[in-house]
Computed example of a mutant assay.
Amino acid sequence: MKNLLKYAAGAFILALALSSCREEPNYSDVPAITFDRIEQYTYTANKITRDTLIIAVDFQDGDGNLGLDRIGPDGTQSGPDFEPPFNPGSQYFYNFFAIPQVKRGNTYTSLPEINGRFPKLSMDGKPEPLEGEIRYTITSFSTDAYPFADTIRFEVYIYDRDLNKSNVVYTDDIVLYQGL
């Protein structure tokens, strides 16, 4: 029994030492994204069919400076994440860009982009490598605005707080209003 405790303690210390040697990943400070999936939820209310779409992209970022506050500390659009270059009307006000593209034959035609903000992913503000998934929900597809069951895809990219643009990815094709 005495030997068992001695060896168990030694094994624990060795495991602890080896786990503390884990190297941090070495990602670029420019965010990189990969398309993961697009989820489609279709429902009808008051004779209008609507699609809610969720675009999921995986990301890697070397300094972890992803995300912007959606609202300032005082409950309004104030604070550092609403001052230039992130001020309303600026091209950097949004940090998630999804450009719907309608498929016509073998070509795609872009529609007006659907942009939004995803929140800060590192709360302590320290530069550190981050990886994970961003899920962005789009609820604006309805038969009153988009009357046809079109095949669409999205061109997607993000910006970090240093204004670095990620690579561009494309979602899989989906057919609107087919989830019923």
Rank of each mutant, 00 (worst) to 15 (best):
L176G: 05
M123S: 14
T49G: 05
K2A: 13
T49E: 04
E131D: 11
G132K: 01
E24F: 02
P112N: 06
A149C: 11
Y92N: 01
D63Y: 11
D69R: 09
C21L: 12
S28Q: 12
A11K: 13
A98Y: 00
E24R: 15
N167G: 04
R104S: 06
G105C: 04
V156K: 00
G64S: 10
C21W: 10
G105N: 07
T151L: 02
V57I: 11
K6D: 07
P100K: 03
P84W: 11
Y43R: 14
S122T: 09
R117Q: 00
L163S: 07
N106D: 15
K126I: 02
Y159D: 00
F154G: 07
S166I: 00
D51Q: 06
T139W: 11
N46A: 13
Q101W: 13
F96W: 07
P112W: 09
Q101D: 03
Y170S: 15
E39H: 09
A32R: 14
A145N: 10
G125K: 05
E24L: 06
E83G: 08
Y7H: 08
Q40R: 11
F141Q: 02
I134Q: 01
R104T: 00
L5G: 10
A15H: 02
P88Y: 06
P129T: 00
I138L: 10
R135Y: 13
Y43Q: 10
D150T: 08
D162M: 06
T44P: 04
G64Q: 03
